[in-house]
């Protein structure tokens, strides 16, 4: 048994939990007193935009083209599930068609 690795996993587990909980708990006690209320909308938008790019595996037409119908579905339906399914379906069609 590798105790060093167990310690590392335990440390990561505690760190992950604290980083989710502590800022929230601190904010709960000081609600409405900070500029953060105004900032939140921009945090969400910037996080979504950045995470979208971060999770694209490669910048190729085959990986980006399926996102075009996904944009249209997201705009018209505002349904996350439908958008994801359309993107995956478009990607599958591109793969099957040999592009």
């Amino acid at each position: 048994m590798n105790y060093f690795l167990i310690l590392a996993v335990a440390s990561l587990s505690i760190l992950s939990l604290l980083q989710r909980l502590v800022p929230w708990a601190v904010y709960k006690g000081h609600k409405g007193e900070t500029i953060l209320t105004i900032v939140f909308d921009y945090v969400a938008i910037s996080a979504f935009g950045s995470l979208m790019v971060e999770n694209i595996q490669s910048f190729t037409p085959v990986s980006l083209v399926p996102l075009i119908p996904a944009v249209l579905v997201a705009y018209w339906t505002r349904n996350a599930g439908a958008t994801v399914l359309v993107a995956m379906l478009a990607s599958l069609l591109l793969s099957v068609s040999g592009l």
Binding site: D41, A44, I45, F48, G49, L51, M52, V53, N55, I56, Q57, V62, S63, P66, L67, A70, V71, V73, A74, Y75, R78, N79, A80, T83, V84, V86, A87, M88, S91, L92, S95
Partner: peptide, 22 residues
Amino acid sequence: FLYPILYLALPALFLALLIPRV
């Protein structure tokens, strides 16, 4: 061939959540 399709789910999700906020 399935991996690129599976990997597309996450960017598509964040795209879906981003667009209505703009």
